[in-house]
Nucleic acid binder design. Structure first.
Lengths: 205, 205
DNA sequence: ACATTGAGCGTACATCTGTACGCTAATTTA
DNA sequence: TAAATTAGCGTACAGATGTACGCTCAATGT
């Protein structure tokens, strides 16, 4: 069991992480947050910050990890819905858009830091995205019959298109998102179909 | 003709733009540059900066526009090479990778600000990317026979995949770039092939 | 019961930032 | 040639930042 002291510490730590997430929006990236701002929002003294994180970088990496985890859990939950039948692509895109809408800031930090200035951050985001690609590669190898290389290339392309659409969607009204989502579905089908054809060509030789 | 005064002013302005470009690298984004740093690098007093730009934002937008222009010119030059024959996809990717290698900082500002915190910046980058998509859409409609919607979706997917690979390539050694480029070619072929099949399905109905 | 630990605070400081203001000196205009 | 314009400079200032240092006092361990 956790002593009342450790409990309080955990609470403050969460307050810091939440404070940081809450300060993120379209015009505010993690790297533009200052230690003092975060501490202020979490209602602790700036210097107390150090009781929880070595520096802002450590906070940020925590957020990336936590965000990636959240995302994967949500997407997995959505995938179960797809198993009930229907177009896997369509349902996955729908799930993705819902997750995006309810957790915009989790996406913001991932999308932004993916092309950010800190190598550790980029690596952390790449790791999270790699999880998605990897899961999808296995899925593709299993259900459709693809060579490992093709499955990998396909999965990577799919994830790239989805994340990219996600970035665009973040700035949009719901109506425009619908258009975007429909186009995304078409693009994903292109990749899936094209991959199938390429695989067939390889087999017939 | 330009008076010697206007000439000198233009020279200083260029020095500012170049100074800013030179300060960009993997760990340094435009938004992390300060007015004073840029002025220092350009060897003028911080306050003289205002004789040329209203603020850093104006400098940045200038850089995005200029960068986009440079890029399109280089890609167009590369496309002429493709007309001599050979795989359009393969040659375009080669051109792209060469441009990337010789102008990394132009890419950095585009890639970074694409998902940056300033709406005007994002819009400016989107505008530049839109040029590429638009050119490619027309090209596709003309050479392959595609419905406008399909051509658009296809062009968008292609550009997305290329730019995304570009972002990844920026951090890589030349050997790894080769692997990346090969995979990118496969992915682009998937999209092209898939689009073709989808178009056929539409026609046969 | 008493000693130790540690989360959070307040003060303090050096550093960097953007930019207001007024000057100089060279170019341009009339 | 005299007047007007203007690129660039130096000084100055208020605000924000990261973090070092030492204190308090409640929780914990013995």
């Amino acid at each position: 069991m956790m002593g009342i002291r450790a409990q309080q510490k955990e609470k403050t730590r969460r307050a810091l992480v939440d404070a940081a997430f809450n300060q993120l929006n379209a015009e505010r990236s993690f790297s533009s947050l200052s230690l003092r701002e975060v501490a202020r929002e979490a209602k602790i003294a700036p210097t107390s910050f150090y009781r929880h994180f070595k520096d802002m970088n450590e906070l940020g990496l925590t957020m990336v990890d936590e965000g990636g985890l959240t995302l994967r859990q949500l997407m997995r939950k959505g995938r179960q819905r797809a198993e009930a039948g229907g177009s896997v692509i369509r349902i996955s895109v729908e799930t993705f858009m819902e997750v995006l809408e309810s957790n915009p800031n989790v996406f913001r930090i991932l999308l932004h830091e993916r092309s950010g200035t800190s190598a550790p951050f980029r690596a952390a985001v790449a790791r999270e995205i790699e999880h998605f690609i990897s899961e999808l590669t296995h899925y593709t190898e299993a259900t459709a019959k693809r060579s490992p290389e093709l499955a990998r290339a396909q999965a990577e392309a799919l994830v790239t298109l989805v994340f990219n659409a996600g970035a665009a969607a973040l700035d949009m009204k719901r109506v425009d998102r619908k258009v975007l989502a429909d186009r995304l579905v078409i693009q994903l089908r292109m990749v899936a179909k094209g991959s199938e054809v390429l695989q067939q060509k390889m087999d017939n030789r």
